[in-house]
Design a protein around this nucleic acid. Sequence first.
DNA 1: CTCTGTAGGCGTACGTTGTACATCTACGTC
DNA 2: GACGTAGATGTACAACGTACGCCTACAGAG
Lengths: 201, 201
Amino acid sequence: MPRPRSLTRPGIAAAALAVIDRAGLAALTMRSVAGELGVATMSLYRYVADREELEALVVEHVLAGVDLSVPPGDWRDQVTVLLERVREAVCEHRHVVPLLVRHRHAVPASLSWIEAMLTVLDGAGFTGRRRVLAQRTLVSFVIGVLQNEYHGPLAGAGTAAMAELSTADFPLLAETAAQARGVSAEEEFHEGLRIVLRGLG
Amino acid sequence: MPRPRSLTRPGIAAAALAVIDRAGLAALTMRSVAGELGVATMSLYRYVADREELEALVVEHVLAGVDLSVPPGDWRDQVTVLLERVREAVCEHRHVVPLLVRHRHAVPASLSWIEAMLTVLDGAGFTGRRRVLAQRTLVSFVIGVLQNEYHGPLAGAGTAAMAELSTADFPLLAETAAQARGVSAEEEFHEGLRIVLRGLG
DNA sequence: CTCTGTAGGCGTACGTTGTACATCTACGTC
DNA sequence: GACGTAGATGTACAACGTACGCCTACAGAG
């Protein structure tokens, strides 16, 4: 008998993501999302408990698009594919990086992704505590890389500023920062992952 | 001739840190820090440009206490010591983790720490792009680990909830989460670091 | 000791945010 | 066509960062 709903949670997530993509994370407010949807601010509270839940909804929406199938072959390639897909999904909406870090624990799509990772590791012979540590280390790495790329990209102003530092105070930093400007985000990610995988193997 | 200042930037940083340690990151406001110091809110703006700068000040204060000397011996042990010290400093004030991630690029103590790391890597024979990638991978790892420990500790409620998940939907996740509850934060950190170092070697 | 210029300290006020609360409204069902 | 229910909304408030301008305390000159 009741009045039917006029919004959906995925629709709200998409609207929030549109706001973030267009105007950055700081522009994400309950008012801006409601405006994007053409409804009153308080209408959102019929679908999410609070702002926290809206943010989690955005993360779920981004992660939901990640393909969890893996190709046959070496487990290293399988892990690489799963990490690459997350990175790709996040890079299409780079401003969600801080949200991903804060909310990935509360998001179903994240659990499914972890299950996929564990399946690969299990197939590679990782069991018990070794599997726990392999999984956590890989997750730590990918979270760290995404944070690094977001807050301090090698091609960005921060690195450029370091390259201009006094070589008397920071001899290696200045030199290394100059080198770093020629390293792409993709190279940083893949080479870092190769290092971690070698350590696991 | 002017009126002498009654506060110092380190003093403000210490007050902010005290607020954070006592009441959490959400309690960090310009008003609460001013209250901690016994001055009016607007007085802080004679010392910091805005809230951003106050947050950076807190990160600087935490990182400034990190010993940058390294023991003679294997470079792996030297890297381990430098990472351990950062982790130790941050863990004493665990609520600064999000601030560390956001502001470490704008903080002098962070630059000195990076220089120390690069010196170790240089001594180990890392040069050029290889040194860039080694440095960035180690930083990504430590940032990721700290984030992981902060937002989703293995001993915390999130892991416990995963362990209770349906084994039909998440067979490996449920089992692995149960295992994970017995892994300490120290073990996670050290074993993860061992993996990365092995990959670098 | 008095005077004064300067910069620090602070009171007030404004725009923005998240969201509690009460009210209004539109629709499936009878 | 009437009704009950749950969705949609308007209003309002507390807390936040901070712009602005006034007041005040002190070092140095006289």
